[in-house]
Design a protein around this nucleic acid. Structure first.
Length: 379
DNA sequence: AAGTCGGGGCT
DNA sequence: AGCCCAGACTT
């Protein structure tokens, strides 16, 4: 008997189980218990795709309203391919990871040009589209086209590592690739009738979201796979999955300037790449500026400050950065002229309707709404 | 393999 | 305050 086999029999740690055994039980459980979600009303590949992109690193509850509005505004792939950029970003405003929607439009144009508007219907073809990786290709191929392929996401990694007491770091690409291969092989052997890759993959999502919980005691009494689970048998569910500690965030000081001219507010569009690409922002020079420096900044844009007020500090946390912000309201003389490019003075109401502003500025953006100014008050 | 890229909700 | 979420892309 090999050392590995001995170890598995004694502790069942990191020992591969036969995944074909869990497929029928999970499909059966999914058919009884599936959540009623907006993107489960049909199997239209465009609908499935939009939902999967929105759901990347994003909770179901946060996605629902965005999903409905997005499809109402852009009902077809062609609508997405033709959508003007600022309108597209406005539809994604507040959802985060903005490259998702930019990549999705690139892919929509690929579909129009390379596939004549017919949605690619295999995992292999889907993988060539911008923004579609191993997970999303598997999800769309299985849910919309019933291809027997895996869709390995955080839920699957958590469920399988608990089932097998797998001690490997789930952030490693090798683990994801191996799970993808093993699940796909198991689906190829078992799919048929009510056992489908669609039910299995979506069952994994529902199981991960509602039963095999992250960062909380799982509800093993409700789990259709409990009898297969090594971690449950040993009472160590919370020890999995194993994951290396995240790197600490770097901290950036910034000074946010609300530069106002009557009802207008000064903004500019961010660059095409990097953080918050393609969104609009208030001037936010790096560092914590003193009022004099903030006034110089405004003067440097060719504006004539007539008043400055310090605002409460604010903090915003990104995945890898923290912004510690100082803020000022600066009122400038109404010159009736355009601002220094790339800055523009836009009516505040129009900004709120048409310009996507990142949540990072929400403390100051909200302050603005609570302190409307009319031109009569100018000093 | 490691870094970049948002925002929110739960513990 | 830290963790994670229906990840993908770049370097």
């Amino acid at each position: 008997m090999s050392g590995i086999t001995r170890k598995c029999e004694m502790k069942t740690e990191g020992c591969e189980m036969d995944l074909t055994r869990i497929i029928e039980p999970l499909c059966s459980w999914y058919d009884r218990s599936k959540r009623d979600l907006p993107w489960r009303k049909d199997q239209d590949p465009y609908h499935v795709w939009v939902s999967e992109i929105m759901l990347q690193q994003t909770r179901v509850e946060a996605v629902k309203s965005f999903y409905r509005r997005f499809l109402q505004e852009l009902p077809t792939v062609e609508d997405l391919a033709c959508c003007e950029e600022d309108r597209l970003m406005k539809l994604w405003e507040g959802l985060g990871y903005y490259s998702r929607v930019r990549n999705m439009q690139t892919a929509a144009r690929q579909i129009m040009e390379e596939y004549g508007g017919n949605f690619p219907d295999t995992r292999e073809k889907l993988l060539k589209l911008k923004g579609i990786g191993a997970y999303t290709a598997g999800a769309v191929a299985s849910i919309a086209f019933n291809e027997p392929v895996a869709a390995v996401d955080g839920n699957v990694l958590r469920v399988i590592t608990r089932l097998e007491k797998d001690p490997r770091d789930i952030m490693k690409q090798s683990v994801r690739t191996e799970f993808d291969r093993r699940i796909t092989e198991a689906l190829e052997k078992t799919c048929g009738g009510s056992v489908t890759s669609s039910s299995f993959n979506q069952g994994m999502m529902d199981l991960g979201a509602g039963v095999c919980l992250p960062n909380a005691a799982p509800l093993c009494g409700k789990c259709p796979l409990a009898s297969f689970c090594s971690a449950h048998e040993a009472g160590v569910e919370m020890d999995y999955p194993k994951k290396k500690a995240a790197k600490p965030r770097r901290i950036e000081g910034r000074t946010v300037l609300l530069i106002r001219d009557g009802d207008r507010i000064l903004i500019r569009k961010r660059g095409k790449k990097g953080l918050l690409a393609g969104l609009w922002e208030f001037p936010n020079p790096e560092g914590h500026l003193e009022p004099e420096a903030a006034l110089s900044f405004a003067s440097g844009l060719g504006l004539e400050p007539v008043h400055i007020r310090a605002l409460a500090p604010a903090k915003h946390v990104f995945s890898h950065i923290e912004w510690h912000m100082t803020g000022y309201e600066i009122r400038v003389a109404s010159l009736g002229e355009e601002a220094e490019p790339p800055y523009v003075l836009i009516d505040e109401e129009q900004v709120r309707r048409e310009y996507a502003i990142p949540t990072a500025f929400s403390a100051y953006y909200n302050w603005l709404a609570d302190h409307r100014q009319n031109t009569e008050q100018d000093v």
